[in-house]
Amino acid sequence: MTSNLDHTKDFIALWSRIDLEAILAVMAPDCIYHNMPWAPLQGHDAIREGLAGFLAGAGAIDWQLLHVAESQDGMVMTERVDRFLIGERWIEMPVMGIFEWQDGLIVHWRDYFDSARFQAEMATIS
């Protein structure tokens, strides 16, 4: 039986394919995705719209998993560096993520990162 930790590692690896529909397929239809400090998104349509911006300009995506832990109730915490190749420049963001799983699907996903740093990095892209 696959653990939630294994599901999370597979989900993180999936991002390198830059395939939004494959990413959404790992989420429950009513999944909540909350990219702190922005407003949470719920359901595939809202999450698709929210994630499209991250994927649209990326020539490559490489999420580097630094640390991962699974709680006794199956919640998975990750420390990552999310890397996006935009044009010829890599944008790198340290991220802490929480993944809650049910029946092999993400039901709640929260990411914590410095949005001001992200916006400053994006402003340098021409």
Rank of each mutant, 00 (worst) to 15 (best):
S3D: 04
S3R: 07
N4D: 11
N4F: 07
D6R: 07
H7D: 14
T8L: 00
K9Q: 10
K9R: 15
K9A: 10
I12Y: 05
I12P: 04
A13V: 06
S16I: 05
S16M: 03
S16T: 09
S16P: 00
R17Q: 10
D19A: 04
D19G: 04
L20P: 03
L20I: 13
L20W: 04
E21L: 06
A22M: 06
I23F: 05
L24A: 02
L24S: 03
A25C: 13
P29D: 00
P29G: 12
P29S: 11
C31V: 09
I32Q: 12
Y33M: 14
H34A: 12
N35W: 08
M36N: 03
M36T: 02
P37R: 06
W38K: 06
P40Y: 03
P40I: 01
P40R: 06
Q42Y: 05
Q42P: 06
G43N: 03
G43R: 03
D45N: 06
D45V: 06
D45R: 07
A46P: 09
I47P: 08
R48F: 01
E49W: 03
G53K: 07
G53L: 03
G57P: 05
A58V: 01
A58F: 00
D62W: 04
W63I: 14
W63Y: 05
L66E: 11
L66W: 06
L66I: 12
V68P: 02
A69N: 07
E70W: 02
Q72T: 15
D73K: 09
G74E: 11
M77A: 12
M77F: 15
T78M: 09
V81F: 00
D82V: 10
F84A: 10
G87M: 09
G87N: 08
E88I: 08
I91D: 14
I91P: 15
E92W: 00
M93K: 03
M93Q: 15
M96G: 11
M96H: 06
M96D: 08
E100F: 02
Q102P: 11
Q102W: 07
D103C: 08
D103A: 01
G104I: 03
L105S: 08
V107I: 13
W109M: 06
W109T: 00
R110H: 13
Y112M: 05
Y112F: 13
F113T: 07
D114I: 01
S115H: 15
Q119S: 15
Q119R: 05
A120T: 13
A120F: 05
A120R: 13
A120W: 09
E121F: 08
A123C: 08
A123Q: 09
A123I: 13
T124Y: 01
I125T: 10
I125F: 00
